[in-house]
Design a protein around this nucleic acid. Structure first.
Length: 891
RNA sequence: GGGCGAAUAGCUCAGCGGGAGAGCACCUGCCUUACAAGCAGGGGGUCACAGGUUCAAAUCCUGUUUCGCCCACCA
């Protein structure tokens, strides 16, 4: 079906206006249903699941980059004939949202504690209704071709069902357990967080040396600590069993200063004799290592710091103090009472909450954990054996290193917004029931007094299931069967552990399949000065502002050009301007083509091959090469290079040369068949290049495409271009190289010798051989039109004109007539400079060719090329010398 | 303490075994009937440093320096 909706030329503005085009094309695509693939066994599927943005978020540059990359991949696959599903959705973002809702309540003068769990959740859902889709609307402005009819939410019914299913299965398999362990407690968020949610920051601190007197009065041991306040909870002092200094101390008792508690000196291999004093105070309730030592030696746990970060009753007179306040007070007291021996500067890593940046407090709490070792093994294997590939490859190591050293995952959170843990406790007998649905009674004692665990699951527990929970798992839906496993997962390197790793082991465990075959990792978008864009620095640039001002295409293009997978990039306005200019360039090239296509009907069949001009054949050849190039680059995920490749072709070849060369043929009246052949080529190459560019710049390409004669409803469902080997024309490319070189040489002479642009010049081209002569002669009209000159082509060895300045190219001498205006000295200088350069290069080349090793070991085609090059350079040098000799005589 | 990345033109970055590239900026000339968000021409680089491998190194190897990142329970 052919559909032509061409606009009159007068309605096409000279400057491309993205604001006028983008919105309506997006609506058009959406209405036509182009974003919605079907389960169609006749066609191959290609699936990408979006990294679900938080409902609390709004689109930032990181999202813009991430989604641009996904859109490029998905649009190309769709054009290639895949059933391309880009599955969108959002994440409930447990802590982040809970904080937002609490703020909201605070504004109303109330709190979550006051209104209670149920009311709080209702408010949270309200909040989500109100703000949760902000980011979705913004993604549409970017051009994201997501299937919105399948939009999911990590807390929706289906995803929740998957979460419960997984929890129950893991529990039944013994891979989920509950227990009291030392965990990372955030006193501000009032919840435990997992190990990877703790950010370590090297900080300058102190190492306090404190004297612990022996009970028997025979002396003391000195311990070193970075957190003196924790000593209030000490229940032992440990030394290394092999440490000679302390042999006599092991088994003795010391008296804890200030507190007065009697605690034993124990021996434990963990203690490093070389660090500090070689004696460690042991606080099992407030330090992970001490906790382990406590377990080994059966030490009591004395909790001195509470969940609010304040000292407990166990802290005696420090009770109620903030932990840092207590530190100051305690140090003072120790000093006063003579227990403080020394304070040394010491840098150490302090853990901070990734959400609120508070210093994390290690506390013993009751939590749920996932036993990781058994899950990690297949996840390691799948990456090692190449089932899942990271791009760039170096992230494989990062992933494996983490997986191989993985520790159990703390999944419970002391929050309300999220998936509530499906565990019920019997108030009567204490039995724990884990079930898909609330049980009627206790399985052991039959009591109906059951209480569900108040905690919710880590947000990442549900995102880990995203690639299959969104397709209906645990149900064996047709969608799951068809679209899963997915293809490429596109994400930034900072969530490899949080998300990618967890999707991999989850998918392997529950579906038995890999979640995706490729993980495309990109970097962070930084500010122009290289710093991270952040709210606190106030240096963030809103992608929507850029879209409003320059268009989504310009934003997308500037994010993708110059991008190397895995590397950070800088965002600066000059780049956006460049991309905007490119869109405009394209727009105007299209305007030119349209202006010259008014009497052209693409349906009357392609032009006869014989009617194609050199320029036609050349641009068709180049076009086919570029298709191959772009395919190769996209297949290798080098999207930045692919974009550059189209850019260069369109601007530097199609616009700069082909359009210019097409003009004489289009304007000429004497060759209607030739004119038609050029019209056809102009149209065909532009139309095809638009399709190549469409994944990168969807809007402008559609806007233009709809104005061109076209078949089909939209460029986004038009077929992806295919490279045709048969149309690659080496001889046309060689000939064009000669034309281009000659044209440049002549333009250069004109510019350098100040021949006014409008003025008709006279030029003589002396070919180096008969082949070059033929080409120059045939194409003389082109060169004339490109240089505003009258040309005479002279065969090799022909007579040189007098009174000219010249440039020697590899295939010709280009003479510009100056008739007595020549500055002899200046010309000699110019030629000499060229000769010097040529000779230097020639010498280099000859040195290579006289190298026995080069001749015998280098690839034959390399040697051949070098020979050709040397011959060319020698000829050029000889001609330059002749020319110089001539001027010398004239002097 | 381990690991990774970056270092190439004034700036931002490609290139990653065979002739140093792009965009922006800069200089010169042009409102040439697609585009001044443009056209034509031009200048500009011991590819961080030191060794090594190779016929051949910006590119591979080793080390060094500077910057950045990630991981790690020595108090």
């Amino acid at each position: 079906m052919k559909e032509i909706t061409r606009r009159p030329l007068t309605e096409i503005p000279k400057v491309y206006d993205p604001a006028a085009e983008e919105g309506r094309w997006y609506d058009f695509w959406e209405k036509k249903g182009f974003f919605r693939p079907e389960v169609n066994p006749e066609k191959p599927p290609f699936t990408i699941v979006i990294p679900p943005p938080n409902i609390t978020g709004s689109l930032h540059m990181g999202h813009a980059l991430n989604n641009t990359l996904q859109d490029i991949l998905i649009r190309r696959r769709r054009m290639q004939g895949y059933e391309a599903l880009w599955l969108p959705g959002t994440d409930h973002a447990s802590i982040a949202t809970e904080v937002k809702v609490e703020e909201w309540l605070a504004q109303e003068g109330t709190s979550k504690e006051e209104i209670g769990r149920e009311a709080f959740l209702q408010r949270a859902w309200e909040w989500r209704e109100k703000y949760g889709s902000t980011i979705v609307r913004q993604l549409k402005k970017l051009g994201s071709s997501c299937d919105w009819s399948r939009e999911r939410f990590t807390l929706d019914e289906g995803c929740s069902r998957a979460v419960i299913e997984v929890f129950v299965r893991l529990f039944e398999k013994g891979l989920i357990y509950r227990g009291d362990y030392i965990t990372n407690w955030c006193p501000d968020c009032q919840t435990v967080i997992s190990d990877i949610e703790v950010e370590h920051e090297e900080k300058m601190g102190h190492l306090w040396h404190i004297k612990y007197p022996l009970k028997d009065g025979s002396g003391h041991v000195t311990v070193a600590t970075t957190r003196p306040e924790s000593m209030l909870g000490d229940t032992s002092v440990a030394v290394n069993p092999g440490d000679d200094r302390y042999q006599g101390f092991i088994g003795k008792t010391v008296i804890l200063p200030i507190v007065g508690r009697e605690i034993p000196i124990i021996a434990d291999e963990y203690v490093n004799p070389a660090f500090g004093t070689g004696a460690v105070k042991v606080t099992p309730a407030h330090d992970p290592n001490d906790f382990d030592m406590g377990e080994r030696h059966n030490l009591p746990k004395v909790v001195v710091i509470g969940r609010d970060g304040r000292m407990t009753a166990e802290a005696g007179r420090y009770q109620g103090m903030d932990r840092f306040e207590c530190r100051r007070a305690l140090v003072e007291d120790l000093k006063e009472q003579g227990f403080l021996l020394e304070i040394k500067d010491h840098t150490h890593a302090v853990g901070h909450c990734y959400r609120c940046q508070s210093v994390v407090e290690p506390l013993v709490t009751t939590q749920w954990f996932v036993r990781m070792k058994p899950l990690a093994e297949p996840a390691i294997e799948a990456v090692k054996n190449g089932e899942i590939t990271f791009v760039p490859e170096r992230f494989t190591k990062v992933y494996l290193n983490w997986m191989e050293n993985i520790r159990d995952w703390c999944i419970s959170r002391q929050l309300w917004w999220g998936h509530r843990i499906p565990a019920w406790y019997c108030r009567k007998c204490g039995e724990i029931t884990v079930a898909r649905q609330a049980p009627d009674g206790c399985a052991i004692c039959g009591s109906a007094r059951l209480e569900q665990d108040p905690d919710v699951l880590d947000t990442w527990f549900s995102s880990a299931l995203w690639p299959f929970s969104t397709l209906g798992w645990p149900e064996e839906t047709p969608e799951l069967g068809y679209f899963f496993p997915t293809g490429v997962l596109v994400t930034a390197y900072d969530i490899i552990f949080f998300w990618v790793a967890r999707m991999i082991f989850s998918s392997l465990e529950y579906t038995g399949k890999r979640p995706f075959h490729t993980v495309l990792i990109h970097g962070l978008v930084r500010a122009a000065d290289g710093r991270k864009m952040s709210k606190s620095l106030g240096n963030g640039i809103d992608p929507l502002d850029i879209i409003d001002q320059y268009g989504a295409d310009a934003l997308r293009f500037s994010l993708v050009t110059g991008l190397t997978p895995g590397n950070d990039m800088r965002f600066y306005m000059e780049k956006v301007e460049g991309a905007r200019n490119f869109a405009n360039k394209l727009w105007n090239a299209a305007r030119f083509v349209l202006m010259n296509l008014e009497d052209f009907d693409p349906d009357t069949g392609g032009p006869d091959a014989a009617e194609l001009s050199l320029a036609d054949r050349w641009i068709i050849s180049r076009y086919n090469r570029v298709i191959g190039e772009v395919d190769r680059l996209i297949d290798g995920y080098e999207l930045g290079e692919a974009a550059r490749s189209v850019y260069d072709f369109l601007w530097n070849e199609y616009c700069d040369w082909y359009i210019e060369l097409a003009k004489p043929r289009l304007y000429g009246k004497e060759d209607p068949a030739g004119r038609r052949a050029t019209q056809a080529t102009l149209h065909r190459v532009l139309e095809g290049t638009l399709r190549l560019l469409h994944p990168f710049m969807p809007f402008v390409t559609e806007a233009i495409w709809q104005n061109l004669p076209h078949a089909g409803a939209s460029i986004m469902v038009a077929p992806w271009p295919r490279s045709s080997e048969g149309e690659i024309d080496e001889s046309a490319e060689r000939a064009m190289a000669i034309i281009i070189e000659a044209t440049r040489a002549l333009r250069n002479l004109r510019a350098e010798f100040g021949v006014a642009p409008g003025k008709r010049a006279e030029a003589t081209l002396i070919a180096i051989d008969s082949e070059a002569e033929a080409i120059l002669r045939e194409q003389a009209a082109y060169i004339q039109s490109l240089t505003t000159a009258d040309l005479t082509v002279v065969p090799a060895g022909g007579k040189r004109p007098a009174q000219t300045v010249a440039q020697i190219t590899s295939n010709a001498e280009i003479h510009l007539s100056l008739k007595g205006l020549i500055d002899l000295e200046r010309e000699i200088e110019r030629l000499n400079k060229d000769l010097q350069q040529t000779e230097a290069e020639l010498e280099k080349s000859q040195r290579k060719l006289s190298n026995e090793g080069f001749l015998s070991k280098a690839a034959p085609e390399i040697v051949e090329r070098e020979r050709g090059r040397a011959t060319e350079l020698a000829a050029k040098a000889r001609r330059l010398q002749e020319r110089l000799a001539l001027f010398d005589q004239m002097r």
